[in-house]
């Protein structure tokens, strides 16, 4: 859904999974993650929402930080998925699939078994 007008609660619920998935592609930093989320159609995620989430992932040991200096620009904190982060991503992907299947079954009762049947 380009335009990103999803209810904010939906985004908050799925943001951990989305960020873990982005970091599974490659190490990245706050602004680039926000850009990637926007490009995926999730809308503009403000720093005030994104960075506390990144701090939570870091505190939980799911991502590891490293500071890199840009060309003449400010230092950036790159985040890389840890082994625990990769395992958590696999777990959350499974959970998300089950969750959306359950929601589909309720939201689309006429389509037998929901959309993921």
């Amino acid at each position: 859904m380009p335009g990103g007008s999803f209810p904010a609660d939906w985004l908050r619920g799925a943001l951990d999974l989305c960020v873990l998935a982005i970091l599974a592609e490659s190490a990245s930093y706050g602004y680039a993650i926000a850009q990637r989320l926007e490009a995926a159609g999730l809308g503009a995620v403000k720093g005030g929402t994104l960075y506390p989430l990144l701090a939570r992932l870091e505190a939980a040991g799911l991502v590891a930080p490293s500071w890199r200096t840009g060309d003449g620009g400010p230092s950036r904190k790159y985040l890389e998925l840890t082994d625990a982060g990769r395992a958590e991503l696999v777990h959350r992907r499974d959970l998300w699939r089950q969750f959306t299947a359950s929601v589909d079954r309720l939201a689309y009762p006429l389509e037998a078994g929901g959309r993921h049947a």
Partner: peptide, 14 residues
């Protein structure tokens, strides 16, 4: 200090 460095980098980029 780390949080302010994040803010500076984000504002410089955006």
């Amino acid at each position: 200090a780390k949080a302010l460095a994040d803010v500076r980098a984000h504002c410089a980029d955006s």
